[in-house]
Computed example of a mutant assay.
Amino acid sequence: MYDIVIDCPDPGTLATFYQRLVGGEIVDPTPEWMTLRTPSGMRVSFQQVDHYSPPLWPGQEHPQQIHLDVMVTDLDESEPLVLALGATLLQGSPKNIGFRVYTDPAGHPFCLVTN
């Protein structure tokens, strides 16, 4: 697999959010497309889409289609950091079972997970 591409209204904002969340560098940016190369070498790209509609969780009116899991060592310590970056904790997200569900600034669900 070469790349994961995520639709969004503003590639720069979303690429910067994930760069701050997981590290790495943004490579070959254009206004319509940004690619984040993570410290592990994984590529995640962000593509501008006109008339973007964010997914809804847990409902399926606008299915999430894809989501990212980000490994952390402590959910309680990581939560304020991810919220400060612009994430939103979703209502109904579990608190004590090893993961929590958030949305990024474009509305895509992602999870913070622990071992």
Rank of each mutant, 00 (worst) to 15 (best):
P55E: 07
D3S: 07
L85G: 06
D69Y: 07
Y2G: 11
S45L: 09
I97L: 12
D76P: 05
G12F: 14
P109W: 00
V82T: 13
T16F: 02
Q48E: 10
I6C: 07
Y18W: 10
I66L: 15
G12M: 08
P29N: 04
D104F: 03
C8F: 11
Y102D: 00
I26P: 00
E79W: 02
S53K: 13
P31A: 11
V113E: 04
P80K: 05
I6W: 05
Q64K: 10
S40K: 10
Y2D: 15
Y2A: 11
H51M: 07
P39G: 08
N115K: 13
G23A: 15
E25R: 15
Q60A: 14
I97R: 13
T103R: 01
H51N: 15
M1T: 10
Y18H: 09
D28A: 14
L85C: 01
V82Y: 06
A84K: 12
T88A: 10
L85R: 07
L81I: 00
E32F: 13
G24A: 08
V82F: 05
L75T: 02
C111V: 02
P94M: 03
D28L: 12
P11Q: 09
S78V: 00
L14F: 06
L36D: 09
L14D: 08
G23L: 14
E79D: 04
D74R: 03
A106S: 15
M34S: 14
V113W: 03
H62C: 10
Q48N: 04
L90F: 13
P94N: 07
V72D: 09
L36H: 06
Q19K: 14
F99Y: 14
G98C: 09
P109M: 00
V101P: 11
Q47K: 10
V44C: 08
I26C: 09
V27K: 15
A84S: 15
P80N: 08
L56M: 12
S45G: 14
L75D: 01
Q64S: 11
E77N: 14
P54K: 02
G107Q: 02
L81C: 05
H62L: 01
P94E: 03
M42W: 00
V49D: 02
P39Y: 02
G98L: 02
L14E: 14
S53F: 08
F46W: 09
R100G: 05
P39Q: 09
G98Q: 07
T88L: 09
I6E: 09
G23I: 05
Q47M: 12
D104W: 01
F17C: 08
L83C: 02
W33I: 03
E32N: 13
T13M: 12
L36A: 08
L36P: 00
M42A: 15
L89N: 06
D7I: 01
Q19N: 07
K95I: 01
P105E: 06
I26G: 04
S40V: 09
P11A: 10
V101C: 13
T103D: 01
G59Q: 12
A87G: 10
P11D: 06
D50I: 02
